[in-house]
Design a protein around this nucleic acid. Structure first.
Lengths: 106, 106
DNA sequence: ATTATTAATCAACTTTTTTTGATACATAAA
DNA sequence: TTTATGTATCAAAAAAAGTTGATTAATAAT
C-alpha cells in the first residue's frame, strides 16, 4: 500500500482502489475507537492487551480490526518483546481527512 | 442526518455514528465513480439515466448506490419533471475530506 | 385514455465482512 | 525445559452489504 502523498501519481483505477481501501478501513465504529484510543494515549501507541481492556473486546476480534487498519497503512505495528504496539500513521491519515475530521476522530 | 459542520456539537456516540456512515458511503468504487462523474459534469448534476449510461450500470443497482449517498447526505436529489437529478453536497463532503482528497475524488 | 419513459422499491439470491472459539507460535518467566 | 503470557491466524457461523430481475408509480408523449 502506497503512502497517500503519492496518490497524485496513481492512475485512476489505482486511486479508486486506494480510496476504497482507506474509507473501508475507517468505516467501522470499532476501528474508529481504536484510532481514537491510540491518539489519546500518552505515548501515542497501545498494545493489543491495552486496547482489549479499554475497549472490552476479545483478542481475536481486536486482531482482526487492527489488521484492517494496518493493511490500509493507517496503523503501524511495532514489536516490543512479547507486546505488539500500534501507532497511527499520521501522514497517511492527515492527507485524506480534513483537520476538522482528524480533530474529531483523534 | 446532520450536516458535518455541526459535528462538534455531537456527543461521542453520535459522532461515531456520523463518521461510520460517512466513510461507509465513500467506501465503494461505484459510489466514488458516481461522485466523480457528477463533479465533472457541466452543471454539477446528473440524472439516473446519465449515470446509467456513463458508468454502464443497471438502473436498480444505480438507485441502490445513489440512495446510500443521499442517506449519508453526500448527494442531494432534485426532481426535474420525470428526471431525478443528483448534485453533490460540497459543504458536507469538504468538511470531512482534505482538499487533496476532494481534488482526487472530484 | 393509452403508451412510453424515468426511476424507486422489493424479494430472492450472492458475496463480503465480521464474529467466535480454537489453535498455533513466539517470547518471557519459573 | 516446562509453564505462562501476548497475539496472530484459522475455519465455521452469523450478519451485513451488494446484485438481480420484476414490479410499481409517476410523469410525459401520443
Amino acid at each position: 500500500m502506497e503512502l497517500i502523498k503519492n496518490a497524485n501519481e496513481l492512475n485512476e483505477d489505482a486511486a479508486l482502489d486506494f480510496y476504497e481501501k482507506m474509507f473501508s478501513a475507517l468505516a467501522d465504529k470499532i476501528r474508529l475507537k481504536i484510532i481514537n484510543e491510540i491518539s489519546q494515549s500518552p505515548n501515542m501507541n497501545l498494545c493489543v492487551c491495552d486496547l482489549e481492556e479499554k475497549l472490552e473486546l476479545q483478542q481475536s476480534k481486536l486482531s482482526y480490526h487492527l489488521k484492517k487498519l494496518v493493511d490500509a497503512n493507517i496503523l503501524i505495528p511495532e514489536k516490543h518483546g512479547t507486546w505488539n504496539y500500534y501507532r497511527i500513521n499520521e501522514e497517511q491519515i492527515q492527507v485524506v481527512l480534513s483537520k476538522d475530521t482528524c480533530c474529531k476522530i483523534f
